[in-house]
Design a protein around this nucleic acid. Sequence first.
DNA 1: GTCGAGATTATCT
DNA 2: GATAATCTCGACC
Length: 198
Amino acid sequence: MLDRVLLERPALEVAPLLLGAMLRVDDVTVRLTEVEAYQGEADPGSHAFRGPTRRNAVMFGPPGHLYTYFTYGMHVCANVVCSADGTPSAVLLRAGEVVEGLDRARSRRPTSRSDADLARGPARLCVALGITLDDGGADLAGPRIRLDLPTAASDFATGPRTGVSGAGGSNAYPWRFWMPGEPTVSSYRPAAPRSRSR
DNA sequence: GTCGAGATTATCT
DNA sequence: GATAATCTCGACC
């Protein structure tokens, strides 16, 4: 059962709690191995930094809900909304290990060469689980989506966020959390400065 | 194995 | 019209 009280804390405290958590969508279950904290208003890298918009409205709402968004036109990323109602904190689900519904996950991600690749990366995780924009704002204790927090905190490491746009100069926050030794967590390739020129 | 560059579209200014 | 919390593929070591 999802303990909503735990999610009312700041993202930085919720993030380690989510490591090892089980996230089930329909018949596919993933054990989260890598997450990233976003402190809304105090975080230049967060979508909520510039204030509430239609897209990030869910983040400003009560915790225990799913915040989804489109990025780069092709990819969906999922967050767990935390902190109290009105505080735009969220934890991005970066990677996980598919522990149930492997066949389903594999068919959704035919390009994955190994099972560890199925949910290694925010957008991949969403595809493997079948999360779409339609699931934005969904209750994490609902019929289709269910989140189970681990009973005990897992071992974890922290480090600087990668992949966050350098536009805000926000790469300085060590708000990435992962479980050491997990094959689904690779030292993520530093985001290449993306140039649309040409 | 690691490194570098392009693709593609919802959302915001 | 510009931007973006990424992924995939190809080249090279």
